[in-house]
Design a protein around this nucleic acid. Structure first.
Length: 475
DNA sequence: ATGTTC
């Protein structure tokens, strides 16, 4: 986009001035000039549309990694007040409900693990189901699937996948309230019955990484991180179930908007008042989708431990944190100094509670919530910590963010040669889809280093550690 | 993101 149309408020905060007669709330864009210039004009159009939706509280915002999405931009944050006619939108959550990252810290250094990295890559590839429509070893009957939707990661731990300590370090302790499996279609449930414990495709991955650099020693110590340490990150979501909920409710919410006379600036912004029947139905289905994703990452954590232990019996893998970046959450935030209960849509945006937030586990209370910014294949990831300077409804960036579309990437790169190039850099890629690898070429993403740096400079979160990839399993 | 044009 052309940054001339924006007005700079602070070094890393911009606004889009309203045109005469334009009826909408304030739009705020976090970033520097380079990141904003590289964004599609559609991002601006989309976030201005969001700012025109009913019941918005405060400003509609984009994070430094924002890019064009369905209706809402990816990297978009918008909070709505149910009492003021505020809406909920499936496009504001994203198709992959509760897509997120589970990060595990190990008791091994890269030096210890170097001799068996190839074996680790092969075994992970063998044991972690990945790819479109790929099913796992777990097949659930309808009643069991409903239990997943109600119980989330707590259900998974009860089944023997992981332990109680995992739950302590998952957002919402592994299970959100308000899930209503009865609001999830039979088709959505059917699609999921064989997909628990699977990675999926696209930008999802399981990575073995090494802590390459520590930015903040005090916070790193609280997070249990040190240079040279081996880390595992699992990026995935609610698979077929979440996608089907999104598809189902786009239609239902569009009908509701029409029935209730809500004027939509874009039909992709299908939404309904939070207090309407359809709004409540979607909330119940979305919360079921969140629990599905939390259970999924918990089972994948178990498979990761099983695989790793098979190669290196003394490994200990503890959950550092598990955080989603596609959700709508009911939270209390201050608007003009007054606390209000809001529904915060974060689509491709990570929650980042500041130090002393009551929902944080004791271990992290003094330093803030771990925030995971996942990089593109082969480029590295960042661990950050929530900051008291955040004024974006406790939200921050979630990843590098695409710079080129999947089609553009396919024209420019070849999967096989990318894998060869990365292997020369000491990064082992395993994937069944060469097309998928080409679509995920590192060059198709923005520079994650700049995203993390600007995220910190903008006061959204503080950098704690940089993780360099060693093994990457792609869908 | 996605049984990748349900």
């Amino acid at each position: 986009m052309n940054s001339q149309q924006l007005q700079q408020l602070f070094p890393y905060l911009w606004t889009l001035p309203r045109k005469p007669g334009e009826q909408r709330a304030e739009v705020l864009l976090y970033g520097n000039q380079t990141l904003l210039e590289s964004m599609d004009d559609k991002v601006l159009e989309q976030i201005a549309n969001v700012a025109a939706l009913p019941g918005l509280a405060g400003a509609a915002m984009t994070m430094p990694d924002a890019h064009w999405g369905y209706g809402f931009p990816i990297g978009g944050v918008a909070a709505f007040d149910a009492g003021q006619g505020g809406i909920i939108s499936a496009g504001g959550v994203g198709f992959d409900i509760s897509c997120g990252i589970r990060c595990l810290r190990s008791n091994l250094s890269l030096h210890d693990a170097e001799p068996f990295l190839h074996e680790l890559a092969d075994k992970f590839f063998e044991n972690i189901p990945a790819g479109v429509g790929e099913e796992g070893k777990i097949h659930l009957n309808p009643q069991q699937l409903d239990e997943v939707l109600l119980g989330g990661a707590k259900w998974a731990v009860k089944q023997g996948y992981g332990n109680a300590s995992d739950l302590e370090y998952i957002e919402e302790n592994g299970c959100v309230a308000g899930a209503m499996p009865e609001n999830v279609s039979e088709l959505a449930k059917k699609r999921q019955r064989g997909e628990m414990g699977t990675l999926g495709s696209g930008n999802h991955y399981l990575e073995v990484q090494v802590v390459d650099h520590i930015y903040d020693n005090v916070v790193a110590q609280a997070f249990g991180l040190y240079e040279g340490q081996l880390i595992i990150s699992i990026h995935c979501g609610s698979r077929g179930l979440g996608h089907q909920i999104g598809t189902d409710y786009l239609v239902k919410l569009a009908k509701a908007a029409n029935r209730l006379g809500i004027r939509l600036p874009d039909r992709e912004l299908a939404c309904a008042p939070i207090q309407s029947q359809e709004g409540q139905q979607y909330l119940g289905a979305m919360n079921a989708g969140i629990n599905c994703a939390l259970a999924n990452r918990q089972i994948l954590t178990h498979l990761t431990r099983e695989t790793f232990t098979g190669i290196y019996p003394h490994v200990v893998l503890e959950t550092l944190f598990d955080i989603s970046h596609n959700t709508c959450k009911e939270e209390i935030h201050n608007i003009d100094g007054k606390p209000r209960l809001l529904h915060v849509h974060r689509k491709g945006a990570t929650r980042a509670f500041a130090p002393e937030h009551p929902k944080l586990p004791e271990r992290y209370r003094a330093v803030g919530q771990p925030v995971i910014i996942g990089g593109s294949m082969g480029t590295g990831s960042y661990i950050l910590a929530g900051s008291s300077t955040n004024q974006a409804f406790a939200s921050t960036s979630h990843g590098a963010g695409r710079a080129l579309s999947r089609n553009q990437a396919l024209k420019r790169w070849n999967g096989r040669s990318l894998i060869d190039e990365l292997q020369l850099q000491g990064i082992l890629i395993r994937s069944r889809s060469m097309r998928g690898v080409a679509e995920e070429a590192p060059g198709a993403y923005k520079d994650v280093n700049i995203v993390a740096e600007v995220t910190e400079q903008a006061g959204l979160a503080r950098r704690v550690a940089f993780l360099r990839p060693k093994v990457c399993i792609k869908g």
